[in-house]
Design a protein around this nucleic acid. Structure first.
Lengths: 190, 190
DNA sequence: TCAAAAAGTTAATCCAGGTTAACGTTTTTT
DNA sequence: AAAAAACGTTAACCTGGATTAACTTTTTGA
């Protein structure tokens, strides 16, 4: 069950079997049911989470009680609130499962041990976060300069896997529009 | 003139004077005049840029010719299009100077040398990018759930230094609103 | 298995922020 | 020092997407 993880972690830097061993020992496997929370607002994020199977959503609730999805998580992706994880402060996000989901967790202390025992992981995570940062910047630029239909079209093109697995109103929340608006866009683009 | 850089690079990891030497040797100093471009759409980003003195803006031009500011750059900040830098692809961003500006550049090859000769820099840049990613996520979440006046207020609170040094219409562009709307917000909040 | 809840759609109305335009002020350029 | 360009503000009007509501379809769970 750790195979996918090892494969993921050796994407940017090759790993020896000893290193793979070490990695295995530092992660904990866990199963969640659909609708179950992996993280709730107010919790301190104790571990970063690698998704082995399933779908998650990371969302925030604003002052008016509206939910806004910041990220979906699928197989082979990492989820978690980095800020809360790194600074030991309570998170403002919620992460729950849209399907039954299997994950591997690593705590902050164990991640430090990982960096120490397998220094090349420092590089792996730098690249990983680099990519996440680039994606986030691109999404920000889209939110500044694209209309709702354009953002929807881009989303569909970029994440066809997600479109198939999550409900439309979740996609609307991710795009920053209402389900009604999404429905209109979908019927007009047909 | 490299003092600010060394100070910046030792923020997360301590540096010996030998290491500081190595770092010095890998960066190039450059001066730009106000309005001069550091990077233009279509260029491949050949170096990451550390600002020693001055102010820059990173912006994008959309299909309708509208400019959208993604980031301001001040003293002690890093700017540049990471994606273009890392993948050797032409950038879609422009970076120009809002004041006369002094910077230190490092090329990709020299950054690799830096990682090799001073491995702890890998950690430094991981943390730097981590912070940039967190900031970008927070800004995205604000763009999804905050109104224009709320976003303006947050901006002023978070970057009082920027507010004092850049024109209002630049701030409007950063916030994703028109200068007229910003003007209205400012007069109503007085 | 069937009632209730959740999801999706359509339509009427509303409003935050955009657009256009006019005008005074400040900055830049020559 | 003058002319031109850039900037900031105000006001009238417009519009993309929100809101509200009513209805149908699908999913869920007791």
């Amino acid at each position: 069950m750790h195979e996918l993880l090892i494969q993921n972690l050796s994407k940017f830097v090759p790993l020896s079997s000893l290193e793979a061993e070490i990695i295995q020992s530092l992660f904990t496997f866990k199963k969640y049911r659909k609708k179950q929370y992996i993280l709730q607002e107010g919790d301190v994020t104790r571990y970063e989470t690698f998704i082995v199977k399933g779908v998650t959503r990371t969302y925030e609730v604003d002052d008016k009680g509206q939910e806004h999805i910041l990220q979906f998580g699928l197989e082979d992706w990492w989820v978690g609130d980095l800020y809360s994880f790194l600074t030991d402060t309570p998170t403002t996000y919620n992460i729950d499962c849209l399907e039954d989901t299997q994950v591997l967790h690593i705590t902050k202390a164990d991640l430090e041990i990982l960096y120490e025992k397998v220094p090349k992981m420092e590089r792996h995570f730098r690249i990983l976060i680099q990519n996440a940062f680039i994606a986030s910047t691109k999404r920000l630029s889209a939110s500044l300069s694209r209309s709702a239909p354009e953002r929807y079209e881009e989303f569909i093109k970029k994440y066809p896997q997600i479109e198939q697995r999550v409900a439309n109103h979740q996609i609307a929340s991710y795009l920053g529009i209402t389900p009604q608006t999404l429905s209109r866009i979908r019927s007009e683009s047909k």
